[in-house]
Design a protein around this nucleic acid. Structure first.
Length: 282
DNA sequence: ATAGGCGCCTGCTGGC
DNA sequence: TGCCAGCAGGCGCCTA
């Protein structure tokens, strides 16, 4: 579910509510998330204070006293937010950290359990984890030369390139489609066929679209809520995502949908014309 | 190196 | 009304 703008919104909203708070108790559900929870982690979290809350790609990182890094991925349906203690837990709540005097709790809820909660012993271990997955650069910080080279050597369609977290961290299905529309590039176009002006257009489009979405506190389709429980607004500004059959906001041509890289893909056939190297079939 | 398929999960919607 | 297929902001594994 949540892509970079949603994760960034959660981080911004949790930061003031978490920073400086002590973890007073830890409860976990029995159901497994994507990465297994180790019982020793619960004991290690107790009494730690949150020093900082940050983000890397779609990963939320809470830095704790003593160096530990609590790392959370929201998967498709994850929600991470603060609740007053005593509020009934939503179904599918998998982790509850009581904070400070116990009047407030951080709760992680994840219906489909594609998300994860992991504890790393220190920053070095966490860096090793990101390195082992070859997590790419933050989208606002992509070197144009690096980007051109990644595209020039990409023997796959642009949609697949944007979804690859090793190329750039944080883009998912919605913002891949929105960025390709913004850059006026067909999602099925092969990466290596891009001229350098087109590559540069795409690099800028990715960061523009993500920044706009962050300003709107992300997109809520069905599950996503920010760290304070508020929905996002950017879904109202989608140009193509989820709009197949509706008019393109730029040229009024019908937005089309196809399946690329296993994912539902939306684009305007007039604004994002297929080149010879792009698939034309659905 | 890449595509494509499947699996992990649950829940919702639309068609019959 | 009920059932079933298809769909969903992610990602990792397998095979060809």
């Amino acid at each position: 579910m949540p892509e970079l703008p949603e994760v960034e919104t959660v981080v911004r909203e949790l930061r003031p509510r978490l920073t400086g708070r002590r973890i007073a108790s830890v409860r976990v559900s029995r159901l497994a998330l994507r990465r297994p929870w180790r019982p020793a982690w619960g004991r290690r979290l107790l009494g730690r204070r949150v020093e900082a809350v940050g983000r890397r790609g779609k990963w939320i990182v809470a830095s704790l006293t003593g160096g530990d890094r609590l790392v959370i991925h929201l998967g498709m349906t994850g929600r991470l937010r603060i609740w007053p203690a005593g509020t009934p837990a939503e179904p599918h709540t998998h982790l509850v950290l009581a904070l400070g005097d116990g009047s407030r709790e951080l709760r992680f809820r994840d219906v489909r359990r594609f998300g994860s909660v992991t504890l790393f012993a220190n920053a070095t271990e966490l860096e090793g984890f990101f390195r082992s997955s070859a997590l790419g650069p933050e989208p606002f910080d992509v070197d144009p030369t690096y980007w051109r080279r990644r595209l020039a050597t990409a023997n796959r369609c642009l949609k697949a390139v944007l979804l690859d977290q090793r190329v750039v961290a944080g883009v998912g299905n919605i913002y891949a489609d929105e960025a390709l529309f913004e850059a006026r590039l067909h999602p099925g176009r092969m990466g290596r066929t891009l001229r350098s002006a087109e590559a540069e257009r795409l690099r800028c489009a990715v960061s523009t679209v993500l920044a706009r979405a962050i300003a709107r506190r992300g997109s809520t389709i069905r599950d996503y809520l920010g760290g304070s429980g508020k929905a996002g607004d950017y879904q109202r500004e989608f140009r193509v995502y989820g709009r197949s059959g509706l008019a393109c906001p730029r040229c009024a041509q019908q937005v089309r949908r196809l399946r690329l890289s296993g994912r539902s893909t939306h684009f305007c056939p007039r604004c994002q014309p297929a080149s010879r190297s792009a698939p034309t079939r659905v």
